[in-house]
């Protein structure tokens, strides 16, 4: 049962971290746009610097990815212990793995600095739509064992 609790808590916390990544990505895009357009509005003064937003984004995605990894491992393991199967081809499982893969790619891309700034911000926003779909969408539109919402 402990596995299931860790699985749930870590997964939810990882979503929260990805939410922080998403928000900092959106703020980054807004701030970047103001800088490129040479517009110093109220928003410009209130928002943090691009570098700061970028660091939040990196940190949030790193933490989120680590938590998601723990959540997934515990999920798979818990499933094996409780139900005797490692994997059920549940849509949520598939999506969660896809999510894990996407954030892995995003993390690697960001850490290796192949992409920076606006594009990373855009990707972290895109990643979060996948989070939303995995978290909320699945149980609405697809048959799943993880139907609790």
């Amino acid at each position: 049962m402990l596995m299931v609790i860790v699985h749930t808590v870590c997964s939810l916390l990882s979503y929260a971290a990805f939410l922080v990544g998403f928000v900092s990505g959106v703020l980054f895009l807004i701030q970047e746009r103001q800088l490129k357009r040479k517009h110093m509005g109220v928003l410009f003064r209130r928002l943090p610097a691009l570098g700061t937003l970028d660091r939040w984004n990196l940190l949030a995605i790193g933490i989120g990815f680590a938590l998601l990894t723990i959540g997934l491992v515990c999920g798979v393991w818990g499933s094996h212990r409780l139900l005797g199967v490692w994997w059920r081809w549940d849509p949520k499982e598939l999506l969660a793995v896809a999510l894990w893969g996407s954030y892995l790619v995003l993390w690697v891309v960001r850490a290796r600095a192949t992409l920076r700034g606006r594009k990373v911000a855009l990707l972290s926003i895109l990643g979060f739509t996948l989070v939303l779909f995995t978290f909320l969408g699945v149980s609405r539109w697809l048959p799943t064992w993880h139907a609790y919402l």
Binding site: A49, L50, G51
Partner: peptide
């Protein structure tokens, strides 16, 4: 300076 600070912090 303000612009540079808004980019780099």
């Amino acid at each position: 300076i303000e612009l540079a600070q808004k980019i780099f912090g």
